[in-house]
Design a protein around this nucleic acid. Structure first.
Length: 214
DNA sequence: GCCAACGTTGGC
DNA sequence: GCCAACGTTGGC
């Protein structure tokens, strides 16, 4: 899963130079992405939406518990995000797409190799002001912990933790009733670490905050 | 720790 | 360009 990286003086990045050693360290991934989108003629549903984006809600997974991956702890919970200066972290890579360590997303995306088209397109389509759920994965109780804006800036905690189990209950019910979560990517595309939500999905999930856990 | 799902790689 | 082997994700 994409993992936000602390935004500290650029030098921080643990090694890992991308293949041809790119130096363009954009501290604004979305900007880099947009630029890249411009130069690319390729049409994908995500990039098509780029200008007047309709799909403007996201779910981003991150791991809240310590786990070493090649010697690097991948832990980054919403509390960690909150504790960052400006409560903001830089997007630094998409984990299951092999460029993961320390690459800033600008580099990541310039290196078209190996980054899944899906992830690339999603990242490209993300806009700074868009909202995303911050999802805790690979942990004891997976679920949605908070709201962020896309560069990744903390917005607020969820009023209560919305667990995967609860979401799944609704998903299953909605499959038969045709409710808003019936196609939710968390369940239908389970390995996608950055995924889009329809407004219907987004607001339905937000509305769960006000209710008792089911 | 297990393992299903599914993405990627590489031989052919 | 097919597809088997392999690697990763991530819930359980």
């Amino acid at each position: 899963m994409p993992k936000p990286r602390k935004r500290l003086g650029g030098a921080a990045g643990p090694d890992n130079k991308g293949p041809a050693g790119k130096h363009t360290k954009t501290k604004n991934p979305a900007g880099a992405l947009a630029a890249m989108g411009n130069s690319s003629p390729e049409k994908t549903s995500a990039s098509k939406n780029c200008g007047k984006n309709l799909s403007s809600y996201w779910l981003m997974k991150s791991e809240p518990e310590s786990r070493l991956e090649k010697g690097v702890d991948v832990k980054f919970s919403i509390e960690d995000l909150k504790a960052e200066p400006k409560q903001t972290a830089c997007w630094d890579g998409v984990r299951n797409y092999q460029f993961t360590n320390g690459l800033c997303s600008g580099q990541c995306l310039h290196t078209s190799l190996g980054v899944s088209a899906k992830a690339r397109n999603f990242l490209r389509a993300m806009k700074l002001e868009q909202e995303a759920f911050f999802y805790h994965s690979n942990c004891k109780e997976p679920g949605i912990a908070g709201l962020v804006k896309v560069d990744v800036q903390f917005v607020r905690m969820m009023k209560r933790y919305i667990t995967l189990a609860e979401l799944k209950t609704h998903y299953q019910a909605h499959k038969t009733t045709g409710g808003p979560l019936k196609d939710m990517a968390l369940f239908t595309r389970q390995r996608l670490s950055v995924q889009t939500l329809t407004p219907e999905e987004f607001y339905f999930i937000l509305s769960l905050e006000e209710k008792e856990p089911s």
